[in-house]
Amino acid sequence: MKVRFTKKEKIFLAILLVACTVSAFLNIRELKKTPREEVFGNLGKRWVVEIGGFRLNPMTIFVGVGIVALLVFVAYKFRRFELIPSRGQAFLESILETFYEIVDDAIPDKRFVKPTFVIATTLFLFIAVSNIVGGVVPGINVLTDENGAIRKVQLFSNLWPAPTADWNTNLTYALFVLIVSHVFAIKSKGFKEWLKGWFQPSPIMLPLNVIGELAKPISHSLRLFGNIAGGAILVYILTYMTGYFFAPLIFWGFFGIFVGLIQAFVFSILAVAYISSQLS
């Protein structure tokens, strides 16, 4: 397969590469100036704001709203599908078509193919964009003290503000998938059949079935969280150790784009698999 770029796309890619290189250079300069204790003492802390008893994470909310706005803008731009597709439309269509084939194969009840497809592709698009934003756009680091109050705002630091590097986001999506799978099962099989499913091989297995269901969202969300947050911390430490000009570029490319896209795909495929295992 040979990929050809138009002139506009070539210019865009060149600008992206130059911007990444410049921000990598600025990152290294910023990192060299901060003392060692501040660099490693700040890794486990987050900026937290408390409003009426709720503890909120403002960076997650800002970046999450930004990503949703970006996706809505793209959807608005491609709202009318042309018969002869442009390049962007062909790209989007190929992504959606791949997902539709996978969902169509996996879901046994044909009434639930379309809802599952919508859920899976929405999750995939949000998580993929979030991971790429985490990898390509170097973060605004907010230094905090023990209680989560702001101490200092630092531009061009290597910590990632991706919403998926925050466990709250991932757990929300995993719980959503769990609830949706049970609602679909009740709608598809009827309440009695669904209740019988809990006592499936024999009634003694009920506690094991309950634990198995509860373990699903935890492993589902921790997989994504561990990959993105662990990758972010690993890149931070490796960049600090090497202090080399091109190192952050390569690490961002690997941990942000490659691992991020694979994990987004795995997350939505597992969502489809959980829903289909409840339906069958």
């Binding site: 921790l222 561990g226 990959n227 947050a229 694979i262 795909f265 795995v266 495929i269």
Partner: peptide, 16 residues
Amino acid sequence: LLADAIAETTGIYSLL
């Protein structure tokens, strides 16, 4: 690659 990403989950847990 998909199967690799799922198999390395426990390694990621221990890293975290």
